[in-house]
Amino acid sequence: MYLLYVSACVLLSSNLLGAASELDYDGWLHIRLFHALNDDPVPQYVERGNITVSSVRSGASTIGQHGLQPSQITQLKYLAEKDSKYRLKAIIRSASGGENTFLTSLPACYLLGSDLEDILVIWIDSAAEPVAVNLLSPTGCTLDNPFAKMWSTSVQVKYPESGPVPDTASYIQKLEREREARERGETKDNRSFLAKYWMYIVPAVIFVVLTSATNPEAAGGGGGGGQRQ
């Protein structure tokens, strides 16, 4: 039973927009997905579907995937029982014309646990070329039969964040402000009492502690006298 399940979803997550400046160009990606459900070192890939990311900056994508046949679900369950991995191959064509093959895998039980709901994360570099494809499952591991026969995939595109730079500007500003304040002579000190006068308080406290500690006979003598009366 082949069902064509087409869903279009637009992902506009706020954290992606924040780092968008690190992306030099916007681009598109065309992804062909193949998966292997056999429990063997040599994978036998069959087609799973296609994903088109029309804009890597916004993350807008169109997903078209085949559903799983009962035999495939059995295979998936077998994989899960054997604690084996579900392998996914993604062939990505990008705006620059290059085509690269990526491989990712996931313990099969996680797919059963999430009822065939998975997250496909595509990591791209600053030139909008794909770097890695990761398949994640939002939930835990079970061996139960899945309710769904259809993949419900969400696609996320992640780009590199910008590297930190030494924050000299604000530091210089801070120094400047302090200097100005000093010049104006109105050092408005809003520190707490302790922070302001600790250098007087700490010696005093130590003094008290030490005098009481080093003169125990004086204190003890006084106490003894009190008892005697």
């Binding site: 690190e22 030099d24 491989l103 990712t104 895998s105 996931l106 994360v121 990591w123 570099d125 600053s126 030139a127 770097v131 890695a132 990761n134 994640l136 992640k158 780009y159 590199p160 964040e161 910008s162 590297g163």
Partner: peptide, 28 residues
């Protein structure tokens, strides 16, 4: 020519193959 002075750093989990973080330094 275009990416000559960029420095990329990727944090990769080598068991699952999952990318964890990526970062780029321009003009470095």
């Amino acid at each position: 020519s275009t990416h000559k002075n960029t420095l990329n750093l990727y944090l990769l989990d080598v068991i699952s193959g999952a990318m964890v973080f990526s970062l780029v330094h321009k003009r470095a």
